[in-house]
Design a protein around this nucleic acid. Structure first.
Length: 439
DNA sequence: AGGTTAAGCGCG
DNA sequence: AAAGCGCGCTTAACCT
């Protein structure tokens, strides 16, 4: 019976795939630039198959130890929270939390969720923590619970007994921008931003005699913005190898790069990232904790200093409205059916996606090219080196110690050379016994 | 028992 | 009215 079901499924799958082919193939023939993207996807699938089969070695005892430590601290936080609240409750239930916070303790409601419930998200808790003791406990409890339940408790159990390795699945046709996504487990959202979270990466290890190497593109999306916009000041910053956030701060604040303070650089970094996402003055104000008017002044100043970027953003919105889609450097398309919607918020959302997709998508194109070329080089010259993960702008490898010099030299060169843009592409490598040390 | 949605949060 | 792009996973709550 199982065989019959399998053969029926296989036949249906092939038949339906042929139906799809008959529809899509003529469309592909009519769109020359998309043929190149199609070829890239076919070539990438070969490299992805290899990465998935390789998997990455997980150090289970390290995770178990971390789970234990997290569990102790979480228990302690729960006791302290009950003490402050005057009663036990489920800290993991936003509903119960709302009742304790807003009904029992009378804390102010900062904002509502999409469905009208009183929000207790991180931003709200941060604000409330300024005046009350309980929110801070919740914030720590939330972050540690996340680490334990999603990572330290789960990962080791997902390693195959056969090889002690986790084999994620990469989806090649999920993210609309052309990025990969990773699932079961997702290895593209392993913590790194906090010191406690980073420790999870210590459990992504190399076998004895081997190393983990991480090679990542430097400032890839901003470089693509420079290329796409052709903005002179941004091009110059990258061509001269400047610290781009510092350079932006110098422009926006009208001072010399050496005079830029740490806070000014942080502002500029937020502005640079915000622009890639189509952020408004309202959003910039919120993330910098300043007045909307002040944020608007920074953005205006930015566009005065980088007029090419302003022109690019306007042109991209306009092109999206007339064509109904936007393209990456290599011709990958993102269709935007809501770009001319009469619904203001929906249309604005489509405009932000239109701004972002060419940059995010071009970065995705480039790292797929890198994966193809690097895998070909490994097969031809370095069969002992395995590519084991892709994290959007980063490739991770497991290598015999004897291959360290080769990899340090060859992989960034390949990654930088996959395409010639108006600015140089730069890739950096780190190595160590585990993924944390490789950064 | 199993599926879905909401809220929340991890990453680039 | 909404206000920052792209994802996947966990828990609670609710449903069949």
């Amino acid at each position: 019976m199982a065989v019959e079901r399998a053969s029926q499924y296989s036949c249906e799958d092939s038949d339906l795939t042929l139906d799809v082919h008959r529809v899509l193939w003529p469309q592909l023939q009519a769109a020359p630039r998309l043929q190149g993207i199609y070829e890239l996807e076919i070539a990438s699938s070969e490299a992805l198959y290899r990465v998935e089969r390789n998997g990455v070695l997980i150090d289970a005892p390290t995770l178990q130890q971390q789970s234990h430590e997290l569990g102790q601290r979480i228990l302690q936080l729960e006791t302290e929270a009950y003490e402050i609240a005057g009663q036990p409750f489920n800290l993991g239930s936003p509903k119960q939390l709302g009742e304790i916070f807003f009904d029992k303790l009378g804390l102010p409601v900062i904002k509502k969720t999409a469905t009208g419930a009183r929000s207790t998200d991180e931003e709200v808790l941060e604000k409330l923590a300024e005046d009350y003791p309980l929110p801070a406990k919740l914030l720590e409890h939330r972050s540690l619970s996340k680490l334990k339940s999603t990572y330290t408790d789960k990962l080791a159990g997902m390693a195959l007994p056969r090889d002690g390795r986790v084999h994620t699945h990469y989806a090649q046709a999920v993210a609309v921008t052309g990025r990969l996504s990773s699932n079961d487990p997702n290895l593209q959202n392993i913590p790194i931003r906090t010191v406690e979270g980073r420790r999870v990466r210590e459990a992504f290890v190399a076998p004895p005699g081997h190393l983990i190497a991480s090679a990542d593109y430097s400032q890839i999306e901003l470089r693509i913005m420079a290329h796409l916009s052709g903005d002179e000041a941004l091009l110059r910053a990258f061509r001269d190898g400047q610290d781009v956030h510092r350079a932006t701060a110098a422009e926006v604040f009208g001072i010399a790069p050496e005079q830029v303070s740490a806070e000014q650089r942080r502002y500029a970094k937020t502005i640079n990232f915000g622009l890639i996402y189509g952020m408004s003055s309202f959003g910039l104000a919120k993330s910098l904790g300043i007045e909307t008017k002040a944020a608007a002044a920074y953005i205006e100043r930015y566009f005065q200093r980088y007029p090419g970027v302003k022109r690019y953003m306007d042109d991209t919105r306009a092109a999206a409205k007339t064509q109904g889609y936007v393209e990456t450097v290599f011709g990958r398309r993102l269709y935007l059916p809501e770009i001319n919607s009469p619904n203001g918020p929906r249309r604005a959302g489509a405009e932000r996606a239109a701004i972002n997709a060419p940059m995010q998508g071009t970065a995705a194109d480039l790292i797929k090219m890198s994966m193809v070329q690097v895998q070909q080089a490994l097969d031809a010259q370095r069969p002992g080196v395995r590519m084991v993960m892709q994290v959007h702008d980063e490739l991770v490898f497991e290598l015999p110690e004897s291959e360290a010099d080769w990899l340090r030299e060859a992989v960034p060169a390949l990654m930088a050379g996959v395409a010639t843009l108006q600015v140089p592409l730069v890739a950096e490598v780190g190595m160590g016994r585990n993924w944390d040390q490789a950064h």
